[in-house]
Amino acid sequence: MMGRSHALSGWCAGLAVAPLIGLTSVAEVVPFAAATAGYALVPDLDHPGAKASSLLGPITRIVSGAVRTFSGLLYRITKGPRDEDSTGKHRHATHTLAAAVGLGFLAAGAGSSGRWAVLAVALAGLLLAADVLGDWIITIVIGAAVWSVAGAAIPGTTAADAVQAGLAEIGSWIGVAVAVGIFVHCLGDSLTRAGCPWLWPLPIRGETWYEIRLPKLLRFRTGGWVEKAVIAPLLVIGGVLLLPGALSVVQGLLAAIVSTTSVWVAGG
C-alpha cells in the first residue's frame, strides 16, 4: 500500500490547487490541503488491508466490503473483450476519473445541505489524513480553523455565527478537495508497475479498464525503495515549499546565506 505517499501527494496537490479556487491564506489553504490528503486515501477502500478500510473498525470494513462487491460487479458488466480475467475489485471502480468527479459532486451536495454534513465530510478527510501522516496534521488544522473562525467574527455577531461562516466556507470547496484527492491517488498509481485504469469507461485497445502507466523503465514497485527513498522525500519537501509564504522564506534564507558567505570571502 502506498498510503503515506498517497496522502503526501494529496497534501501537495491541495496546496497547489488552493490558490486556483481562491484560497490564499494559511487559514484557508491548510484545511483544504488536509482534506485533499485524506481523500487521496479513499480509493483504497477497495482493499481490505488499506488504512482507510480499518480506520473506524467494523464500520469501514463493512464499507470496504461493499465497495469491493460493487467494483467487482461493475467490472464484470463493463469489461471489454481484451480486459484481463480479474475479480475487478482492487484498483478498479474507485480508481477512476468518473469516481473522482462523482464523489466530488456528492461531497459538494453534502456541503450545501447543512453545517453538520459539511463538518462530517471535512472531519472524515482529516481523520484519514491523520491516520497515515500523524496527529501533527490535526494540530495545524485546528490552529488554522481557529484562525479562520476568529477572522470570520465581526462586531455584533456571536461565536456561533463565526463557526457557521467558517463551515460555509468549507462547504464551498469540500467537493473539490474530494475530487482532487481521489484523482491524485489515481495518478500516483499510474506511476507503479500495475498502473491504474482511471480513464474507464473509455475503450482503449479493446479494454475498458485499460491500465494507464509510465514506460516500463520508469515504473516503480509499490512499497519499494524508489517510493521510500525518492518519491516520499520529494513529496515532503514539496509539501513544505508549497505552504503559503514558504518559498519566500527559503529564498530569503538563501539570499542571506549567499550574502554572508560573500562578506566572509571578501574579508578573507
Rank of each mutant, 00 (worst) to 15 (best):
Arg115Cys: 12
Ala152Met: 11
Val29Pro: 00
Leu73Tyr: 10
Val249Leu: 11
Ala160Leu: 15
Gly109Gln: 09
Ala100Lys: 08
Gly72Ala: 14
Asp135Leu: 13
Met1Gly: 03
Trp173Val: 04
Gly245Gln: 08
Arg219Asp: 06
Ala18Trp: 08
Ser172Glu: 03
Ser86Ile: 06
Thr78Lys: 08
Ile182Arg: 07
Trp116Ser: 11
Arg221Phe: 09
Trp200Phe: 10
Phe220Arg: 03
Gly72Cys: 10
His47Val: 07
His90Asn: 06
Thr96Tyr: 11
Gly49Arg: 13
Gly267Ile: 12
Val121Ala: 13
Ile182Thr: 02
Gln251Thr: 02
Ala34Arg: 05
Ile138Glu: 07
Arg61Val: 04
Gly181Ile: 10
Arg91Thr: 01
Gly114Gln: 15
Ala165Gly: 03
Ala160Gly: 05
Leu242Lys: 03
Val258Trp: 12
Trp264Lys: 03
Val180Ser: 04
Trp200Arg: 02
Leu126Ser: 03
Trp11Tyr: 12
Asp83Lys: 05
Val63Ile: 15
Gly3Phe: 13
Leu55Phe: 09
Gly156Ile: 08
Gly38Tyr: 11
Ala100Ile: 09
Ala66Pro: 00
Val141Ala: 05
Gly114His: 13
Ile182Gly: 01
Val230Pro: 00
Leu241Met: 09
Arg91Tyr: 08
Asp44Met: 08
Trp147Asp: 14
Ser53Ile: 06
Gly188Asn: 15
His95Leu: 15
Ala194Asn: 04
Asp189Ala: 08
Thr158Phe: 10
Glu211Met: 15
Arg221Val: 13
Val240Asp: 01
Thr24Ile: 05
Val236Asp: 00
Gly38Trp: 14
Leu74Ser: 05
His95Gln: 08
Leu199His: 02
Val184Asn: 03
Arg91Cys: 07
Ala255Met: 12
Val250Ser: 02
Leu56Asn: 01
Ile231Tyr: 10
Thr96Val: 07
Ile21Leu: 11
Thr260Phe: 15
Leu235Glu: 07
Leu15Tyr: 03
Arg91Glu: 06
Gly195Val: 06
Ala40Trp: 11
Ser86Ala: 14
Pro201Ile: 10
Ala129Gly: 04
Phe70Met: 14
Pro48Met: 12
Val101Gly: 04
Ser54Ala: 10
Gly114Leu: 15
Ile204Thr: 02
Ala130Ser: 15
Ser172Asn: 04
Leu8Cys: 05
Ile62Ala: 14
Pro233Glu: 10
Leu214Cys: 02
Ala18Ser: 06
Gly245Pro: 00
Val118Lys: 05
Met2Ile: 08
Ala162Ser: 09
Ala33His: 04
Leu243Gln: 06
Glu84Gln: 09
Arg193Leu: 13
Ala7Lys: 04
Ile140Ala: 02
Ser112Asp: 11
Ala229Met: 11
Lys216Leu: 12
Ala165Cys: 08
Ile21Val: 13
Arg61Asn: 05
Ala16Gly: 02
Val121Met: 14
Trp173Asn: 01
Val258Pro: 00
Pro215Asn: 04
Ala130Arg: 08
Phe32Leu: 10
Thr139Ile: 14
Pro31Phe: 13
Val30Leu: 14
Gly223Ala: 07
Leu133Asp: 01
Gly268Tyr: 14
Ser53Val: 05
Ala13Trp: 14
Ala108Cys: 06
Ile174Ala: 01
Val226Gly: 01
Phe32Val: 01
Leu253Pro: 00
Pro19Ala: 11
Gly49His: 09
Arg76Met: 14
Val230Ser: 02
Leu243Glu: 02
Ile174Asn: 00
Ile138Lys: 10
